[in-house]
Design a protein around this nucleic acid. Structure first.
Lengths: 218, 218
DNA sequence: TAGATTGTTAATCGATTAACAATC
DNA sequence: TAGATTGTTAATCGATTAACAATC
């Protein structure tokens, strides 16, 4: 789960740091909405119950430069985080599996607002095919390869039932997809140059069930 | 995000180890289905593209004892992992928010099979109220406090829209809920003795968007 | 100015990985 | 038996935390 491929170019930040950046962004944006034009690492840390030094270290990867005694300019900080995360540029994605989970993801404005452009969805069930009010048109899965190619989609969000996950994945990879956000619990077999991010529900559930009997807080 | 509360009793395993255990369980179960009655750490590691030493170390926390040169008996190993994760005992949970995401979670057999007993769901929208075919009955949210108490629910799964997340949380905590699985992007304010597990979509998305432009694999 | 905050360099902490004796 | 695998003890690696000079 935490293996970084051999050919990975240098990422200047660790995965834990990258995962914390969105919460910083949220806090800074709220702070700006409240009328401030500057925010200190100390304030962000208090808000998120983290250590100030960790916030400063994390923010440093975005290239932002703060003013001692003052903090960071909120507008610059927001731009810096968004640029670092590539949330300031659009890219095309498809959703594979238009069930409840797929439909939920179609409706997430947060993803769209951060560059995710859903250009199509696919499903096996006849009765899910067709245009959607708050989401892309759903096409039959046998049109997937062709559509992915013609639309030049870069990312596939996989929300199909486990038994068909690998088959769907194979079609996608064959159609040129090199990034897969995998919401199934299947460990996908892909060529080395394909990036797969597992969004693993059972690992979170495991944390919950262990800490449940033990008392604790994350 | 990784702060363990002061009063946490000893957990013999780290969070990363706990998160890996479900994938081991999956591999071992499949191995058993294929007719084997023993499996080695080496085989599990190969299957999951991990280091064998890591698998052995992780499995050790469950108390399983293997046989040198042979491996672990699959039935004992399955029991050991499930017992460690508390996946062999039931507990009552409610779903708060019966939209697409809530409905998706209702349908996850994997959770039910590992002890999650969904006794009720709640929603604000009139047209979502009522019994469900593949899930618990959905009640109006103004009955939530009362229902949670009378049903003695222990866990709440929060899948409401962000703006109402804190309000829902407050009602739940007031009704005695001490464990919350939070699928919203809101940082909930709760008393110290309440366990909140964030299932943070934007942190995963951030990893994806950073690694996207860099090439890499998880 | 005084003092809060930044950013850098060093120390600590914890998880992963290595080494290897025990053993079936 | 020979050799693959376990489990323990030690080494390494990387992330977090601490210390502190610089500075606005």
């Amino acid at each position: 789960m935490t293996r970084i491929a051999q050919h990975a170019k240098k990422v200047s930040a660790s995965i834990p740091t990258i995962r914390r950046l969105p919460s910083y962004l949220q806090v800074v944006k709220r702070h700006m909405m409240e009328g401030h034009d500057v925010i200190s690492g100390t304030v962000i840390a208090e808000e998120l119950e983290l250590e100030a030094i960790q916030v400063r270290k994390d923010l440093a990867v975005t290239g932002i430069v703060g003013k001692p005694r003052v903090g960071y300019p909120v507008d610059d900080l927001i731009s810096a985080i968004e640029r670092f995360l590539n949330w300031d540029s659009n890219f095309k994605a498809v959703i594979v599996g238009a069930g409840n989970l797929g439909s939920a993801l179609m409706g997430y404005a947060e993803l769209r607002d951060h560059g995710l452009n859903l250009v199509a969805a696919f499903d096996l069930s006849e009765n899910r095919i067709g245009p959607r009010a708050n989401g892309p048109t759903v096409y039959p899965i046998d049109q997937m390869g062709e559509k992915v190619r013609s639309l030049k989609a870069e990312l596939a969000i996989l929300t199909v039932p486990s038994p068909v996950a690998q088959d769907a994945c194979d079609i996608l990879v064959d159609a040129g997809i090199r990034q897969i956000w995998n919401f199934t619990n299947v460990r996908l077999r892909v060529p080395e140059d394909v990036l797969v991010l597992r969004e693993d529900l059972s690992s979170g559930f495991a944390v919950l069930t262990v800490l449940r009997n033990v008392g604790g807080q994350l």
